[in-house]
Design a protein around this nucleic acid. Structure first.
Lengths: 233, 233
DNA sequence: TGTTTTTATATGTAGTACATAAGCTCATTA
DNA sequence: TAATGAGCTTATGTACTACATATAAAAACA
């Protein structure tokens, strides 16, 4: 005792990692190193507990985490099997804007902007006649509506249709995840009577889609979103 | 017994959600609804267990998940406090390429492409003289190197510098997360002697950065990456 | 052979007990 | 008085046991 006194050293990181953390780590290694395929079975909880020399309780905490992330699935008697995790379902769980810092939210807003512009490459590889017609339908409807609500609705519909046409499920879902966070910006803008439309309209974008190139579209979308970029530092 | 017999009803969705799942959900609600600030204390495990009418064990599984995601932190006697989760650290945990499906990896590759192109908007809002000089340094070095390794290195350095200059930490880290997955595409390309360079070179990109517009850059980057887009369907 | 019943088993939940570390109180002492 | 340290308190961490539940697999049955 009394060893805690006067070490001038500053190296005391001592990673107080809990058993569950370690087991989680080991299980990840185990799964990836063994080159498991999705569908392969995983040892029973008890066996894992014995093999690792910890209580079943600890193993369950670790498994619970992996299960949440979709890395494993468990059936009542059949045991556990390695699942095909889809990245996003795991990510969604931590996107509650309330607890995110203001700067993080800003960055997420930018993130969405970037996706919107960059999507041009995919759009031109996969655009279809029906997709374009759908977009035109939205544009036409947009010209008629009056209320702000309806306009916002059309706005969302238009951009959703774009993501749809881009045909990348991962990006689409990721963007959907970002939406709740994104809304705070929309609130901010409506609050500030901020309804300026960029020099490029939805109609213009559709035209580019029909007759232009991917590069045209990227720069067009950028101009379309330009009013929003004033939020950038 | 024998009550399980002959109900002609077909409404038996009964989401076999486990207690831990439900508790996790309730805790999320609790945290977000109560408008907690980071640093606020959370009731003790026993209190939560009693309040929810479940065993402490179940509560611990749920808490373990939240803890993993960085939503809460726990100290030995002080109890648990709400933490400031950063989205990415949570996401990183599930990006082990081995277990991702081939199609998901393709989509992730596209994702990175999209980021690269869309970043133009940020780049032009935040470009600096030093940043550009750094890019030029890389371009010059690139002209001298011979081996494929070195070229790849320069490639990475150039694009990393771009992300750096874009100044969005979230995007940058997200992109870094995607890298391991991205590498499989690089492998694929090198395997197929696939070293075509787009019609726009790094040097061109730097020039656009200096004298062009964001829109120019977006379309330039798109052309620069064009050779890769053959992988798109 | 096809259908129903039973059985065995792995996960899900509850509860108890103890270890451990970290804050707190308070007496001791320079 | 202020600093030190011993001892107590308490919330989390870990272990163990017991039982519920669902279901795959086996056995019984038609």
């Amino acid at each position: 005792m009394s060893e805690k006194t006067e070490l001038p050293l500053d190296l005391m990181p001592i990673v107080s990692t809990t058993m569950a953390d370690q087991v989680e780590e080991r299980l990840r290694e185990y799964i990836t190193n063994k080159a498991f395929k999705p569908g392969d079975a995983i040892p029973k909880e008890i066996e894992l507990a014995e093999a690792l020399g910890v209580s079943r309780n600890v193993v369950r905490e670790a498994l619970s985490r992996l299960r949440m992330l979709g890395m494993i699935e468990t059936k009542k008697r059949r045991g556990m099997v390695l699942a095909q995790p889809d990245i996003l379902s795991g990510m969604e769980r931590m996107l509650h804007p309330h607890i995110l810092g203001i700067d993080t939210r800003k960055q997420i807003f930018e993130f969405r902007l970037v996706l919107e512009v960059g999507q041009a490459s995919l759009l031109f590889a996969r655009k279809t006649e029906e997709g374009i017609q759908k977009l035109e339908g939205i544009v036409q409807r947009e010209a008629l509506v009056q209320t702000t609500e309806e306009k916002v609705e059309c706005e969302i519909a238009f951009h959703s249709a774009l993501y749809e046409m881009a045909g990348n499920e991962t990006i689409k879902r990721f963007q959907a995840m970002l939406m709740p966070v994104f809304e705070y910006v929309v609130e901010y803008e409506t609050e500030h009577q901020f309804h300026a439309v960029g020099s490029v309209t939805h109609q213009d974008l559709v035209d580019i889609l029909k007759h232009g190139t991917a590069a045209d579209f990227a720069s067009g979308m950028l101009k379309h979103l330009e009013p929003h970029t004033i939020l950038l530092t």
